[in-house]
């Protein structure tokens, strides 16, 4: 057998002994959640094409536990907004976000979703953070698949470091109230 170069993800901090491992529930659940993200692709333009490349075997987002895309918001953990969002699409996007169950994260991919991009015009929403809260922004027009993977890894960091019920925290409640979302 030849030497392989497989990297095993490090376990969360905890106490280890012969035959047992102990850590906090937060860390164990965060660890599990971060490697089983079900993303909902909200792809409206060219960033969506880059995302397809990211999902395909060459870049393979499945290595990060996110190969199962969810096309129902009710089953999704991560809303990936990729592409120009017209103002008429805004309420639809918000509706999709509101249907997602907690815990939920949002990733804004590319210049258009993050700021409106080159479309500084009356018909385009100037950044999705005008209507829904965003956790991670990926810059680029469009971003390369490596950047998308970096963005997913940032989301994973967030998931691992957050408390088990982040929706109970006053900051989160204040954020949601700021967007008028119950």
């Amino acid at each position: 057998m030849t030497d392989t170069d497989i990297k095993i993800k490090e376990a969360p901090a905890g106490y280890e002994g012969p035959g047992f491992f102990a850590t906090t529930l937060d860390k164990a659940v965060g660890y599990a959640r971060s490697h089983s993200i079900w993303p909902l692709p909200f792809a409206t333009s060219c960033c969506g094409i880059e995302f397809m490349a990211t999902m395909s075997p060459h870049y393979d987002l499945g290595r990060f536990g996110a190969e199962r895309l969810s096309f129902s918001p009710r089953q999704a953990d991560l809303l990936m907004v990729m592409g120009t969002i017209a103002k008429k699409m805004g309420p639809v996007l918000r509706h999709v976000y509101e249907q997602m169950a907690e815990p939920r994260w949002v990733l804004s991919m590319g210049a258009c979703a993050s700021s409106g991009g080159i479309f500084d015009t009356y018909s385009v929403l100037q950044g999705i953070d005008k209507i829904i809260p965003v956790d991670v922004y990926i810059p680029g027009c469009p971003p390369r698949p490596e950047q998308v993977i970096e963005g997913i890894m940032k989301i994973q960091d967030l998931i691992r470091s957050e408390s088990l019920r982040r929706r109970s925290s006053p900051e989160y409640k204040q954020l949601m109230a700021g967007y008028g979302i119950e």
Binding site: D120, T121, Y122, K130
Partner: peptide
Amino acid sequence: YPLEDGTREDK
């Protein structure tokens, strides 16, 4: 009416 959107912040 101007073409640009009035809510733009990053420019």
